[in-house]
Amino acid sequence: MREIAVKILREAETGRGHYQTYTVEVDDHAVVSVMTLLEKIYTTQDHTLAFFSHAACRQAACGKCMVKVNGAVKLACKEKVTGDQITLEPYSPKVVRDLLCEN
């Protein structure tokens, strides 16, 4: 198994943003996306995490799941996770909650 440390900027919308780090385990050769990690964290570790998920095509066609990955704006569903740590932040200053921004 491979462990990935996922550091997420939360609650920036309150003006009291803080980083929270989750550890996600995946298979050694697993190909995972940022969206896969977010779904895993939401489903198995933290039901309060907010990220774009209500109308996602999951196939890089709708362009709605933008998130800042290690400082660069990416599509969560298309961005492959290769390293063992990653930092996720909202892609715009207009944060609704956690990683979800007004679009």
Binding site: A61, C62, K64
Partner: peptide
């Protein structure tokens, strides 16, 4: 619209786009 007006639903994925 549940999501974005012209990017919601299955139409977008018809034939894998």
């Amino acid at each position: 619209a549940k999501g974005k007006i012209n990017r919601s639903g299955s139409t977008l994925l018809a034939g894998a786009n």
